[in-house]
Simulated assay, not measured.
Amino acid sequence: MERGTLTVLYAVLMIVAVVALDVLFFRNRFWERLIVNVGVVLIFLAFYLRFLK
């Protein structure tokens, strides 16, 4: 798979994970949702830098 395509798919997967967690678990909790979203992005960033870069 081309490098650009893989990066776009990875970003879409991250967005889907953040939105799914927001809708399923943290609908009316702003601070908890913000903390979990930042955590998810950091985890995806760590995996990206470790395995895809």
Rank of each mutant, 00 (worst) to 15 (best):
M1Q: 10
E2A: 14
G4K: 04
G4P: 00
G4H: 03
G4D: 01
G4L: 04
T5M: 11
T5G: 12
L6D: 06
L6K: 10
T7G: 08
T7N: 08
T7H: 12
T7V: 12
V8Y: 09
V8W: 05
L9Y: 13
Y10W: 11
Y10S: 01
Y10V: 01
A11K: 10
A11D: 08
V12S: 10
V12H: 06
L13Y: 06
L13T: 02
M14A: 14
M14L: 15
I15M: 13
I15S: 14
I15A: 15
I15E: 09
V16F: 13
V16T: 05
V16A: 13
A17Q: 06
A17S: 10
A17H: 02
V18P: 00
V18R: 04
V18F: 06
V19F: 14
V19P: 01
A20F: 13
A20D: 05
A20L: 12
A20M: 09
L21A: 13
L21D: 06
L21P: 01
D22V: 09
D22T: 14
D22R: 15
V23E: 14
V23A: 14
V23I: 15
L24G: 07
L24R: 11
F25G: 07
R27C: 11
R27Y: 14
R27K: 13
R29A: 05
R29N: 09
F30G: 04
F30L: 12
F30V: 03
F30Q: 04
E32K: 07
E32G: 09
R33T: 00
R33Q: 04
R33C: 02
R33F: 04
L34N: 04
L34R: 08
L34W: 05
L34K: 04
L34Y: 07
I35S: 04
I35R: 04
I35D: 02
I35F: 13
V36T: 03
V36K: 01
V36I: 07
V36E: 00
N37M: 13
N37E: 11
N37S: 15
N37W: 08
N37H: 10
V38E: 00
V38D: 00
V38P: 00
V38Y: 03
G39D: 00
G39C: 02
G39F: 02
V41F: 11
V41A: 13
V41Q: 08
V41H: 04
L42M: 07
L42Y: 06
I43G: 02
I43L: 13
I43T: 02
I43K: 03
I43Q: 01
F44G: 07
L45A: 15
L45W: 15
A46V: 01
A46R: 03
A46L: 13
A46Q: 03
F47L: 13
F47G: 03
Y48F: 13
Y48C: 07
L49P: 01
L49E: 08
L49C: 10
L49M: 12
L49N: 08
R50P: 01
R50Q: 10
F51Y: 12
F51I: 02
F51S: 06
L52G: 03
L52R: 10
K53T: 03
K53S: 12
K53M: 11
K53F: 12
K53R: 15
K53Q: 12
